[in-house]
């Protein structure tokens, strides 16, 4: 019980401001989404703001929602070393095979979509992933971007335990 509770994380979902408030997160179906089709969340509220300002600015304002997400069966490539090594190995193993068999190098989106399209890993409810932000305003030293920018792609919406509007802001 304690273990399970410790894997519930509070995360943030950013959208363009709409006419009506959302009562559930929006499904990202873009084919260039890094981790494939899913419900995308930010680990850090500051990254949720950056995403709103830079990418969800079509209506001039963005909204941020907050959810608790049960990460028990999420592949956690950020904080879990075994998961990270598994992720690294399987991405490279798959990319190598696609390149060897076809002669074409796949993108990271294509490798992730390959896992989904081939319907494996049904027990995995999402992937947590990081890159490094390049926003000088977010760091307290010069040049080195030491903060992880962490995203969660949720594939099974039933692990999103709640969904709450927290703010609207001008871009």
């Amino acid at each position: 019980m304690v273990n399970n509770l410790s894997l519930i994380r509070e995360m943030y979902h950013t959208v363009e401001r709409r006419v009506e408030r959302l009562n559930k997160p929006t499904l990202c179906e873009r084919l260039d989404a890094w981790l494939g089709e899913g419900y995308y969340f930010w680990y850090d509220k500051l990254d949720a703001h950056d995403w709103g300002k830079n990418s969800k600015n079509g209506t001039g304002e963005y909204e941020i929602y907050k959810s608790e997400v049960d990460c028990e069966d999420v592949l956690d490539t950020v904080f879990d070393e075994k998961h990270y090594r598994f992720w690294l190995k399987t991405i490279e193993q798959t990319a190598d095979l696609i390149r060897k068999k076809t002669g074409f190098t796949p993108s990271i989106e294509e490798v992730n979509e390959y896992f989904r399209d081939r319907n494996i890993w049904g027990q995995m409810t999402g992937i947590m992933f990081q890159d490094l932000p390049a926003n000088q305003d977010r760091i307290k030293v010069k040049k080195f971007f030491y903060k992880k920018r962490i995203q969660l792609a949720v594939y099974e919406p039933n692990i999103i335990l709640n969904f709450e509007f927290i703010l609207v802001q001008r871009c």
Binding site: D73, T90, Q93, T94, I120, Q123
Partner: peptide, 20 residues
């Protein structure tokens, strides 16, 4: 909790079945 060994085997089997 994810069973990484099982997931690895699923992937190995899948990749072995793929053709050009």
């Amino acid at each position: 909790m994810l069973d990484l060994e099982k997931m690895q085997k699923e992937l190995d089997d899948l990749l072995a079945s793929e053709t050009k």
